[in-house]
Design a binder for these strands. Structure first.
Lengths: 232, 232
DNA sequence: TACTCGCCTTGATGTTTATCAAGTCTAAAG
DNA sequence: CTTTAGACTTGATAAACATCAAGGCGAGTA
């Protein structure tokens, strides 16, 4: 790793308050690498060799079975993925690919396990990450089992819509095809769902979304912190 | 806690290899209690006061939203639940009730966090539990998004069916209503799904299930370790 | 300007799942 | 043995979602 890369990496919140020894251990066999857009990073079923940390770009985490495929999550800077497989030294349950050109930090799985063992700060941080990921997944299961695809979409839009004023707007952070897989429908159904949200003041044009009145959309979407608040 | 209760509790795999101090800390404010069948234990949205460990009986973990409700998992002896909420000191995302008369161990949330901090063995065990729970949930999401309800049911039956001989049978471990919520369908659809599995050699009569030929059912269900093997 | 390739939309149709309304069965209580 | 309440099934119908097949639309290219 180049020296200026290393200083950026060491400054990550991930490594904050760690002892020198643990950080050195982690970075010893680490890679810091750029990847082009639309590149496969890992494949489900493979042994967990590295813990991946997103420095820059967007990563799609997905699973396939038979001829079907679905997006589990879309990650951005600061997120790490497949921690559970690394910690348990088992195979990946999910695949991952870059959605955009990305920069990633790869930490060797063995070093991660060893660092968790010798550095309580890092161990605690990884446990926190696991617990947060666990809760995110519980929310995802509830989202899938307790809502229709239209409600999921409405709540996704509310999550993206910034600010607290009645009218807000934002730009799609990725393809509609990816969003469809994320919400758990086919692209065709997503398209129709957009049309169904027009009566609630949602306008889509190209890559931008306009919400006329947050409260009106909320009345349909019925968001609840127990599913939609990522900090809870 | 009564002395003979305490000796049973201390012998739990959960506490194995822990230092005296950590065990004492955990058991200081702990409760060891029997609950009748069909009793609400915790409610989603409440602060996480205790970590629950199942000693005996069956616990249904479920979530509700608006007028809908769904079963997330059904737990048995040795399982613990709502660990993530306890570790992060946040509210429960799920509710839980007894399905049968049950015996539970309740460990105070603060003591659990403190024990994780001071006892590396316990900390590691809890992290392992979190990671395993995380992977179970990933499988659950894949199961929901990549399979139809009929495929989920077929795979659930294969999971329950013991042994390796072609013909096997078992008894439903809980109500069909609960199974329906677990699989993610209404009781009516579950009933119809049973009928749809007859051509694949599945016979239901009362509380017992007979699978004529494992291989035939497998050909339809297409199980994969990445979703169906709880140890992977 | 025309052209072309992806992406997205729209329409027609089929499958999967939910809902409502009877019914049947079963097991426990009288 | 009858009664009865709850669990389960079955039928009819509607909603949600997927699939297949065109078509539109916009960003890049010539």
């Amino acid at each position: 790793m180049r020296p200026d890369d290393e200083s950026e990496v060491v400054a990550l919140p991930l490594f904050k308050d760690m002892k020198e020894e643990g950080v050195r251990l982690l970075l010893k066999g680490a890679y810091h690498q750029r990847f082009p857009s639309r590149i496969d990073l890992i494949q489900q079923g493979q042994p967990a060799d590295f813990l991946y940390v997103v420095m820059e770009g967007q990563i799609e985490v997905f699973s396939s079975h038979r001829d079907r495929e679905t997006t589990v999550s879309v990650l951005g800077p600061g997120d790490c993925f497949i921690l559970a497989a690394v910690f348990l030294d088992q195979v990946y349950l999910k695949s991952a690919r870059t959605l955009t050109s990305s920069r990633l930090l790869l930490l060797p799985a063995g070093a991660v396990r060893e660092a968790m063992r010798i550095d309580p700060v890092f161990g605690h941080r990884m446990a926190t990450e696991l617990a947060r990921g666990f809760r995110l997944l519980v929310k995802e299961v509830n989202n899938l089992k307790l809502r229709t695809s239209l409600e999921r979409l409405a709540n996704w839009i509310l999550q993206q819509a910034p600010g607290s004023s009645p009218e807000t707007s934002f730009i799609f952070p990725f393809d509609k095809k990816t969003l469809a897989a994320r919400v758990g429908v086919t692209p065709e159904v997503l398209s129709r769902n957009f049309a169904s949200l027009i009566p609630y003041g949602v306008t889509i044009s190209g890559k931008s979304v306009i919400v006329k009145d947050r409260a009106v959309l909320e009345q349909f979407a019925r968001p609840t912190p127990l599913i939609d608040d990522p900090t809870v």
